[in-house]
């Protein structure tokens, strides 16, 4: 489909990208284009100027430090999949990126675009929430940091203000052994269209108790939802903890009001939350016990 007439510019630096965003009233970022081009075709959203960051090397770096890995917003899924740093420090990022769509989409789509689009079926918002990631937001007044929970504010909504871009994401390196699990309910075939997803993270500390427990459900509320009562139940248990049903039963499923659409009814989504939560916790706990992520 022919797009509406649009202006295009390819900035040479992140500062120039921000300056352009702030100089042209209806300017927007074009990253991998794997959502935005369709949005423009269907006239769902309208930018009159596209600021293309897809070739900006500054935003495509994966960096390793003692406590974090940092991933530039314009890093593609395929680059994440092939990153040795990710493979050593947080392989769930590569495993999850590998589940997205197909080779063509993975070669163009970016982690930053995935977060800024924030479709409830997007893979990274729930994963980054469960990992306790920090989002680095850059605007004309410099860099600001916020947690993933502060960043993802609603369906297709983020905390980005106009004129700001997501520059990168900082992901903490967990204490080992730890477990990371991503368990989707895919209704369009294997790994296609995740109607509901539960992601879980746990760590085992020195005295042998479970800590840093995070369980996040998505597709059932406007934001990736922390299941805090489940987290509190598991926190402080031993590594042998196995009462998954008991942990999940603490969460009041009736409080959820998930949307109904052609892919799944709200009731189906709600009923799948405890099933997926048990599976995700089980998987993360098995990793802890096997020292899989050691």
């Amino acid at each position: 489909m022919l797009l509406k007439e649009i202006s295009y510019v390819r900035p040479h630096s992140i500062d120039e990208a921000v300056a352009l965003l702030n100089s042209y009233p209806e300017a927007g970022i074009l990253a991998g284009g794997q959502s935005l081009i369709n949005v423009l075709k269907m006239r769902i959203g309208a930018y009159s100027t596209l600021v293309d960051i897809s070739a900006l090397e500054e935003l495509k770096q994966i960096r390793d430090s003692a406590e974090f890995i940092s991933i530039g917003a314009a890093t593609t899924y395929d680059d994440i999949i092939h990153s040795p740093v990710v493979m050593v420090s947080r392989p769930i990022l590569a495993e999850t990126a590998f589940r997205i769509a197909d080779q063509q989409v993975r070669n163009r789509g970016t982690i930053g675009g995935n977060c800024c689009y924030n479709d409830p079926t997007c893979h990274f918002p729930p994963l980054l929430t469960a990992m306790g990631a920090t989002m680095q937001v850059y605007g004309s007044d410099g860099m600001r940091e916020m947690s993933a929970e502060e960043f993802f504010v609603g369906y297709y909504q983020t905390a980005l203000a106009s004129g700001q871009i997501l520059a990168g994401i900082r992901i903490p390196k967990p204490k080992r052994p730890y477990g990371d699990a991503f368990v989707p309910l895919s209704v369009g075939g294997t790994d296609v269209l995740n109607a509901v997803t539960v992601t879980a993270h746990v760590e085992l500390d020195e005295p042998g108790t479970l800590t840093a427990v995070r369980v996040v459900a998505t597709g059932v509320a406007p934001q990736p939802l922390r299941m805090t009562s489940v987290e509190d139940f598991v926190h402080g248990q031993t590594g042998q903890f196995s009462d998954l049903a008991g942990a999940v039963a603490t969460f009041d499923m009736s409080s959820l009001e998930p949307p109904s659409d052609v892919h799944a009814s709200g009731l189906y989504r709600r009923r799948m939350v405890p099933v997926l939560a048990r599976r995700a916790l089980k998987m993360a706990l098995e990793q802890v016990r096997r020292g899989y992520r050691e």
């Binding site: 295009y8 074009l30 284009g33 794997q34 081009i37 369709n38 293309d52 897809s54 063509q104 163009r108």
Partner: peptide, 10 residues
């Protein structure tokens, strides 16, 4: 890549 998901100017 899929060429319907990229602009020619890119």
């Amino acid at each position: 890549i899929k060429s319907c998901m990229m602009l020619a100017v890119q």
